[in-house]
Amino acid sequence: MNAFVIEAHALAKTFGATRALAGIDLAVQRGEAVAIMGASGSGKTTLLHVLAGITAPDAGSVTFHPSAGGPVEVTALGESARSRLRRERFGFVFQQGLLIPELTAVENVALASMINGVAKKDAIPHAASWLAALGLAGMEDRRIGELSGGQAQRVAIARAQATGAEIVFADEPTGALDSHTSAEVMDALLWSTTGQGRTLVVVTHDADVAARCTRTVAVRDGRVVSSAVDA
């Protein structure tokens, strides 16, 4: 099994006159938690989106090494194949959660599995087990508007894990939370990823969040300027 779960080489991306990525190389080890930091406009979110197959780069390559099967060159896939990869192999947690307010907590989590063909009768108890593991037992039938910000983010974390994602991409997952709730959400995010032998890549402005990761990658002007293992 390859030691790296995802590798990027010479990534370049421009939006109009803005150069978002300027030849980035990055390799993420299996089971690692990597924080990507940088000022607004540094390219960190674009880097996350390219690694996750959300955005196609103008040049360069991203290769995903699943735990079973051969390597997958993400950047060589068409949009439908990248979409399938995101649904089946990757998990996502965003600042606002992007949960469906009309659905209950357990339905939001179960939906990730159901989209991949799992029957509702199987997806619901599996989703409920993830909610319970993340401290939300008894809240399965609450709609998102009935949850606190931290609780909603834990629902989003459960949804990211419900399909057995090998790598979770998180974009400012604690950005809208106070410091206490932020720490609780990071507890849940780390436990459900690296705590289970999975991988986390998180974009953050928060030095406290980055300090809890294995390694911090600093990005400036579309380039990696440092990559340091956190103490």
Rank of each mutant, 00 (worst) to 15 (best):
N2K: 12
F4H: 14
E7L: 08
A8E: 01
A8G: 13
A10L: 06
A12T: 04
T14N: 14
A17I: 08
R19N: 07
A20G: 04
L21A: 12
A22R: 00
I24D: 01
R30V: 07
G31N: 04
A33P: 05
A33R: 05
I36P: 00
I36L: 15
G38M: 06
G38W: 00
S40C: 10
G41E: 12
S42W: 04
G43W: 01
T55S: 14
G60P: 04
V62G: 00
H65N: 05
P66L: 11
S67Q: 05
S67M: 07
G69W: 14
G70L: 02
G78K: 07
S80K: 13
R82N: 13
S83T: 15
R86A: 07
R87F: 11
E88P: 07
G91S: 05
G91H: 06
Q95I: 11
E102L: 09
L103H: 01
L103K: 05
T104S: 15
S113L: 13
M114I: 13
N116K: 11
G117P: 11
A119Q: 15
K120I: 06
K120L: 08
K121H: 13
K121T: 15
P125K: 15
H126L: 14
S129P: 02
A133P: 01
M139P: 00
E140S: 13
D141Y: 04
R143P: 02
R143L: 12
G145I: 10
E146H: 02
G150P: 04
Q151Y: 07
A152K: 04
R154W: 11
A156N: 08
A156C: 08
A156S: 10
R159C: 03
I167L: 14
V168C: 01
E172G: 02
E172H: 08
A176L: 09
H180Y: 07
A183G: 11
V185N: 01
D187C: 02
A188R: 00
A188N: 05
T193I: 13
T193P: 06
T194W: 06
G197N: 10
T199C: 13
A211E: 10
R212N: 06
T214Q: 06
R215H: 10
R215A: 04
R220C: 10
R220E: 12
V224C: 00
S227N: 13
A228Q: 12
